[in-house]
């Protein structure tokens, strides 16, 4: 045994060396992880992840910006013309194809609820602006249509629709 170990290219000492190194590496990673993980959103931030909002006060053609998880959220009461305009767009014209139905809740089509940060670099777009009657982002010129879908400019995606549901006809729960 001893002679075999002496002659083979890897011996007991090499094994111990690698094994010790591996254990030390795992140990180091286990220590470093909490030091990095503390940077992640804390409990108080996560606790604000669900809100309820009464939409009854928003007249047709108006947008209200509310805050959810620290992010601005548009709640838009669209006019019938805007809904029609959004529905009339063929999917082939869209950079990030989604139908108007996919972006709204059935039975609540006038209501468009989206995170108000441009999907390019996060600026808040200006409402009822741009060539598509939706939103125009002043930072880098992205333009969205009346369903908040990206139509022009550097943004890659449609404005994000957060998870939400209608608790009643006038109350939405976001998150």
């Amino acid at each position: 045994m001893a002679t075999q170990a002496e002659h083979s290219s890897t011996n007991r000492r090499d094994f111990l060396y690698v094994a010790t190194g591996a254990v030390a590496g795992v140990g180091a990673a286990a220590v470093v992880w909490p030091l990095i993980n503390q940077l992640n959103p804390d409990a108080s931030t996560l606790a604000l992840a669900t809100i309820e909002y009464d939409i009854s006060a928003i007249p047709e053609g108006q947008t209200v910006t509310i805050t959810w998880r620290g992010l601005p959220v548009f709640v838009r009461h669209r006019t019938a013309a805007e809904v029609e305009e959004a529905k009339a767009v063929p999917l082939s014209e869209l950079k990030d194809p989604e139908t108007d139905e996919q972006r709204t809740k059935e039975g609540h089509e006038p209501w468009l609820i989206m995170i108000a940060n441009c999907t390019h670099l996060g600026c808040v777009p200006t409402g009822e602006a741009g060539e598509f009657d939706g939103w125009f982002c002043p930072c880098h010129g992205s333009e969205y249509d009346t369903a908040g879908r990206i139509r022009k400019g550097p943004a890659p995606k449609n404005l994000v629709v957060p998870p939400y549901e209608f608790v009643s006809d006038t109350l939405v729960r976001i998150g």
Binding site: L39, N40, P41, D42, T45, L121, G122, C123
Partner: peptide, 25 residues
């Protein structure tokens, strides 16, 4: 906002990295 958003461009883990940097959404 813009600079931390740059990190969200990284495929798959981008959003998690962005939230890690911001410590929030």
């Amino acid at each position: 906002t813009v600079i931390t958003n740059i990190f969200s461009a990284i495929p798959l883990v981008g959003n998690s990295i962005m939230e890690l940097l911001r410590g929030g959404f």
